[in-house]
């Protein structure tokens, strides 16, 4: 096994930055950073490799223990400007096929009588001016993604156990075992899943599992310029997302279906489904 990475620019905090290793060019260092952070030096608690790696290192990227985390996502709809950066970042990060969306942004124009909703190309190219044929009294954007429900209808219906929920609270699809029956796509009330035209298996938001298990934030959160999208770990006592869920008035989408989403929304309007 290679030398463990000393530190990574994983915390997207402005102050955090690692000094380049001596004797290396900066570019080489950066390339190494990415290679290592994408490398195989990750272990799971209780997994067969956990003993081999030892429980010594807790630095990001070296050892990952899924029982030490419980992720949650917070969307403050009042902050979203509908720039679509998140949708583009998601597509680039996860190689999402064109016309399919792991995340998207909806725009609501609401009047006393009627509501107009649109999401041109999932909001990937941003939003243009809009004309509605009624008097809209309020308008806002709502980012959407997989809710990573605790009582997921999608995992429930998977006939082969290709879809599952990890201990840290992420709903994933095993692309090697998915038979492409699309039952999960039908069962998701939020329209978060699709069959990839490339792999013919079900695909969905993973909260960028390849990032969050290295201490990075999901790509959509990483690029959100307004703080609309926030990602947190409920097992950290002073986590801002945890504090918001604990103390603010929050909503979840389609609460009547009792899917127990782990995506929480601040300032959710009744028109949003």
């Amino acid at each position: 096994m290679e030398k463990p990475p000393r530190s990574l620019p994983v915390v997207p905090d402005e102050h955090a930055s690692a000094p380049p290793e001596p004797g290396h060019g900066r570019r080489e260092f950066l390339a190494n950073v990415l290679r290592l952070s994408g490398g195989a030096l990750v272990f799971l608690a209780g997994g067969p490799a956990a003993e081999a790696g030892g429980a010594s290192g807790k630095e990001a990227g070296e050892a990952y223990h899924w029982d030490e985390h419980s992720y949650a996502y917070l969307v403050d709809t009042s902050k979203c400007i509908g720039c679509g950066s998140c949708v583009r970042a998601c597509a680039a990060e996860n190689q999402v096929p064109d016309g399919f969306f792991r995340t998207w942004v909806e725009r609501y124009v609401v009047g006393m009588e009627r509501t107009h909703v649109d999401s041109p190309n999932g909001g990937k190219d941003g939003f243009g001016p809009i004309q509605v044929d009624f008097v809209g009294t309020k308008s806002f954007f709502v980012p959407k993604l997989c809710n990573h429900c605790r009582a997921t209808p999608c995992i429930q219906v998977c006939p082969v156990g290709a879809s599952y929920r990890t201990h840290d609270g992420v709903v994933l699809v095993d692309a090697e075992r998915c038979i492409g029956c699309a039952y999960c796509v039908q069962a998701c009330p939020y329209g978060s899943r699709f069959l990839s035209p490339l792999t013919h298996t079900a695909e969905k938001c993973t909260w960028c599992y390849h990032r969050i298990t290295k201490g990075l934030r999901p790509a959509c959160v990483e690029v959100c310029p307004t703080g609309t999208r926030q990602f947190g770990d409920l097992k950290r006592p002073n986590d801002p997302v945890r504090l918001a869920i604990e103390h603010d008035r929050i909503g979840v989408l389609q609460a009547h279906l009792r899917t127990e989403p782990n995506c929480y929304y601040l300032h959710l309007d009744k028109e949003v489904r």
């Binding site: 969306f101 329209g191 069959l195």
Partner: peptide
Amino acid sequence: FAFPNDVHVW
């Protein structure tokens, strides 16, 4: 308005 992934007949 349809959810953007909701436009396919799987």
